[in-house]
């Protein structure tokens, strides 16, 4: 019974109307908080955090790069969980969540790749190396594109959602490969230094701005995701209303012999 009580709110959110009401109430607050956190985080990153003794000022790229890369993976996690939920419980809101998260995830992945290559040019001497971490993140980007292309390619929207969910679950194998690529292969990309057993290995003066930025990015994702889900619900309602209008118009029109007579 306790378990039932704890998942009850999730069930309530599955009702699109309730979801929309709740989203409308919390999105402005979350958006405000995101702006504040970004202001604090960027200020800390650019003015308070010290330049690295080896990397100099370029270390500041990391405050965008690392959170973007985390979010790129978290976003795929959200898609995978939503897809699983959609395939098992057949609830449309899970599909809405998976659909809304895909473009956001693609943008975060692109951001991580672009900032990474901008950092790589002065540090490694090249914009791109075929390193395991870089390659696996690039594959993640292609997976996002594939998910969006598959959804666009199938005309029936319900079927598109289901097929995309299957593809998303198949693609989940990439997540552990990305996470552990720096441990499994001896790569140019540095190994995990924040989320590791035994605590972070970076100095607090760099860690704190990074964590604030990570929180800001996460909230940004939540805001964008909730907003995109709301838009998708509205879009589906418009489609449904349009279908109903067409049907009504078809019913009102004189049919058969009467119609021929009218013409």
């Amino acid at each position: 019974m306790k378990a039932m009580a704890s998942i009850a709110p999730v069930y309530q959110l599955a009702n699109p109307t309730r979801f929309m009401a709740l989203a409308a109430r919390i999105v402005p607050w979350l958006a405000g908080l995101t702006v504040v956190l970004f202001a604090i985080g960027l200020y800390m990153a650019f003015f308070i955090a010290p330049p690295d003794y080896q990397q100099g000022e370029t270390v500041r790229i990391m405050y965008i790069h690392v959170p973007a890369a985390w979010l790129a993976m978290m976003c795929y996690g959200v898609i995978a969980i939503s897809s699983f939920g959609y395939l098992v419980f057949r609830h449309p809101m899970a599909d809405v969540s998976a659909k809304a998260a895909a473009p956001i995830g693609a943008v975060f992945t692109a951001l991580a790749l672009i900032t990474g290559s901008l950092w790589g040019k002065p540090m490694w001497g090249t914009y791109w190396v075929w390193d395991a971490r870089l390659t696996s993140v690039l594959i993640l980007f292609f997976l996002y594109l594939g998910l969006m292309a598959l959804r666009n390619g199938v005309e029936d929207e319900t079927l598109a959602g289901k097929l995309t969910a299957v593809m998303a679950l198949v693609g989940t194998v990439i997540l552990p490969i990305i996470k552990f690529s720096v441990d499994w292969w001896n790569t140019l990309h540095q190994p995990a230094s924040v989320m590791r057993i035994g605590g972070p290995t970076i100095h607090p003066s760099i860690l704190w701005p990074l964590l604030v930025m990570a929180l800001a990015f996460t909230l940004l994702f939540v805001v964008l995701h909730l907003k995109a889900m709301g838009n998708e619900v509205l879009r589906r309602r418009v489609v449904a209303l349009r279908m109903r209008a067409v049907q009504r118009a078809a019913n009102l029109e004189p049919q058969g012999p009467a119609r021929e007579a009218a013409e």
């Binding site: 390659t135 594959i139 292609f142 997976l143 594109l145 594939g146 292309a149 598959l150 390619g153 199938v154 079927l159 097929l163 299957v166 593809m167 198949v170 693609g171 990439i174 490969i177």
Partner: peptide, 27 residues
């Protein structure tokens, strides 16, 4: 076969098939 199954009912499924399947071939 996963890609082939996913793109069964699609017009011009072939292009999409390669976009879906090639990333999975990388390993």
């Amino acid at each position: 076969a996963i890609g082939g199954a996913l793109t069964l009912g699609l017009r011009r499924g072939g292009l999409l098939l390669s976009l879906l399947v090639l990333p999975l071939y990388v390993p």
